[in-house]
């Protein structure tokens, strides 16, 4: 009796394992789409539905927003549109208006051009203005609006106006007024951009991801300087020898430089038909469109 029960159990366990193996062999459950869908888009309705848990719900939406952003950025589909980024951030800050990270996050990434973001500076500004309405003493929001105008719209007078506005906030840092002046004077210069990002990278209250992003921007600016230098070398080599260098080796032999130049993340630069650029593998891609955005010295 006992032996029979044990034997039966062994046979059944074998069946379980076998079927599980078959399940795996066939590649698991049939493919499913994880279509992103936001059931409730109205912040007003959501706040009512949240009862007393609006802060908790805000956290949930914040996590969803970050995940949505990350997933879209990683996805290889050409149609990644970041459709839900604004509604999710908007819901988050509506539920918890004092939750500051989503404003900053939105300021950077809503304005970012595809494929890095939806390319919607207007929405970034809308989100920040909402923040200013909720917390009128936050000079950071005013600065961030100026930032969006500066970086994404290259509207330097507007950016300078916002920086000046931020400088008038009672608790604004003292570098804000010079920033406004620089922006107005040499708007779009690489140096003023660098100054802008350095403030972010060194600020205490910015989140890790925000500082990291600022660090990346600074590296991009450095890379642009280096590319300019290298490009000058490549051009003068071409002018002297009458042919385009096909690799760094030729330039080394000609004494223009020593070793293979690498970008600030350690990835070698490439020369393609006489034009110096980032390797496709580099994390710094894509560089801000040179000349238009950052105002290369002409």
């Amino acid at each position: 009796m006992k032996a029979r029960v044990v034997a039966l159990c062994v046979v059944l366990m074998g069946g379980v394992v076998g079927l599980q193996a078959l399940h795996e062999h066939r590649g698991g459950p049939p493919a499913s789409t994880s279509t992103n869908l936001l059931y409730v888009r109205s912040p007003e309705a959501m706040r009512r539905l949240a009862l007393s848990y609006d802060a908790l719900l805000a956290d949930t939406y914040w996590i969803r927003a970050v995940q949505h952003f990350g997933e879209t950025r990683r996805s290889t589909e050409s149609t990644n549109r970041y459709d839900l980024l604004f509604p999710l951030l908007d819901l988050t800050v509506s539920l918890d208006p004092y939750f500051n990270v989503p404003y900053q996050f939105g300021a950077i990434f809503l304005a970012e051009e595809p494929p890095g973001g939806p390319g919607r500076p207007d929405l970034a500004i809308a989100l920040l203005e909402k923040g200013l309405k909720a917390q009128p003493e936050k000079w950071e929001f005013a600065q961030a609006i100026g930032f969006v105008h500066y970086w994404s719209r290259q509207d330097y007078p507007e950016a300078a106006a916002w920086f000046a506005k931020a400088a008038r906030f009672p608790n604004a840092p003292n570098w804000m007024a010079p920033l406004a002046a620089t922006t107005l004077a040499v708007g779009g210069s690489r140096e003023s951009s660098r100054q802008l990002w350095r403030q972010v990278a060194e600020s205490e209250d910015a989140g890790d991801w925000f500082r990291r992003e600022a660090g990346r921007r600074l590296q991009q600016l450095d890379a642009m300087d280096q590319i300019d230098q290298l490009q000058r070398a490549v051009s003068s080599y071409a002018a002297r020898t009458g042919r385009q260098a096909s690799g760094w080796g030729e330039l080394n032999q000609a004494g223009y430089l020593r070793g293979n130049p690498v970008d600030p993340t350690g990835v070698p630069y490439r020369i393609d038909a006489g034009v110096v650029g980032l390797d496709r593998q580099s994390r710094l891609n894509p560089l801000p469109t040179a000349g238009v955005k950052i105002g290369l010295p002409q």
Partner: peptide, 11 residues
């Protein structure tokens, strides 16, 4: 798979 597993548990 479910049925075999159930049979195992009931046994």
């Amino acid at each position: 798979y479910g049925c075999v597993y159930i049979a195992l548990l009931i046994t």
